[in-house]
């Protein structure tokens, strides 16, 4: 195989996976470690990937917007696992905020089942409906203009209300997470709300199933940093986990 062919194949692999290891590449292409290292160096120079210890990770690839309906079926088991992991960070009596989205719904359902007394702020209609089933949970809706495509509320009225409040923990689930681009999403209204929720919380938790890693959406919510704890499922590769830890980004990976 020619060097170019090999490099193209490496790029193609990273389109479907967020990380690859040098050992699997040497195995696959039957070339030396040194050869693979040179390929990866070249590709990193082209901005096609990012080298990490033991291999490489994808560089934020923009993925297309999927509708709320479409996302409801995707990665359900992973979302449930990471919602379970997130529960460990919630205590009775906490005042928390949940944003909208198919991942946060899983967390809302668990909260309804497992907690007796919490105060929950949200801008999601679905979350409100779920939590309204539990008498003892105080629910606050940041209302505003209803956005049917995302089944939540947005706009300046929503922001105004959020900014009047303060929570100890917020749980947001942006569309994409990557080391170089940070947290990103598609709709300006929702991005403003995610930022507002981050601003009013003492501790911020980002819920992102492993498929969201190293991809990006058109608009940035914020950069990653030690103040944001990422919660994800067991599908996140060891490599990526290490890459994040080296960058001092706390990642909580739910056990298999």
């Amino acid at each position: 195989m020619f060097a170019d062919e090999r490099k193209n194949k490496i790029i193609a692999m990273l389109e479907n996976r967020s990380s690859i290891t040098t050992s699997e590449l040497t195995e696959l292409f039957q070339v030396s470690l040194e050869t693979i290292r040179r390929d990866l160096e070249y590709l990193e120079g082209q901005g096609a990937l990012k080298r990490v210890h033991g291999g490489a990770i994808a560089v934020g690839q923009i993925k297309n917007y999927t509708t709320y309906q479409g996302r409801t079926g995707e990665h359900q088991p992973e979302k449930k696992h990471l919602a379970l992991a997130a529960c460990a960070y919630i205590q009775e009596g906490d005042v928390i905020a949940l944003d909208a989205g198919t991942t946060t719904i899983e967390l809302a359902a668990l909260i309804r089942d497992r907690f007796q007394g919490l105060t929950v702020l949200t801008h999601s209609l679905e979350v409100v409906k779920l939590l309204s089933q539990k008498e003892s949970i105080r629910t606050i809706l940041a209302g505003g203009i209803y956005m049917p495509q995302e089944n939540c509320f947005g706009g300046h009225l929503t922001l105004d209300m959020i900014r009047q409040l303060h929570v100890s923990k917020c749980f947001i689930a942006p569309a994409a997470v990557s080391l170089d681009f940070g947290l990103s999403d598609y709709m300006p209204d929702l991005i403003m709300i995610q930022r507002a929720l981050l601003a009013i919380a003492d501790h911020a938790y980002v819920l992102a199933d492993s498929s969201k890693f190293e991809s990006c959406a058109p608009m940035k919510v914020c950069d990653l940093g030690p103040q944001l704890s990422l919660i994800t499922d067991a599908g996140l590769s060891d490599q990526l986990l290490e890459a994040y830890q080296s960058a001092s980004i706390p990642v909580i990976r739910s056990p298999r």
Binding site: S132, L157, M161, Q164
Partner: peptide
């Protein structure tokens, strides 16, 4: 448009200063 605020489970409405402000 829903004004939001504190949810009253009994009446399935929102109320309180937050609702009035909006």
């Amino acid at each position: 448009m829903i004004c939001g605020g504190l949810l009253s489970k009994r009446e399935n409405n929102f109320y309180g200063q937050l609702a009035i402000d909006t």
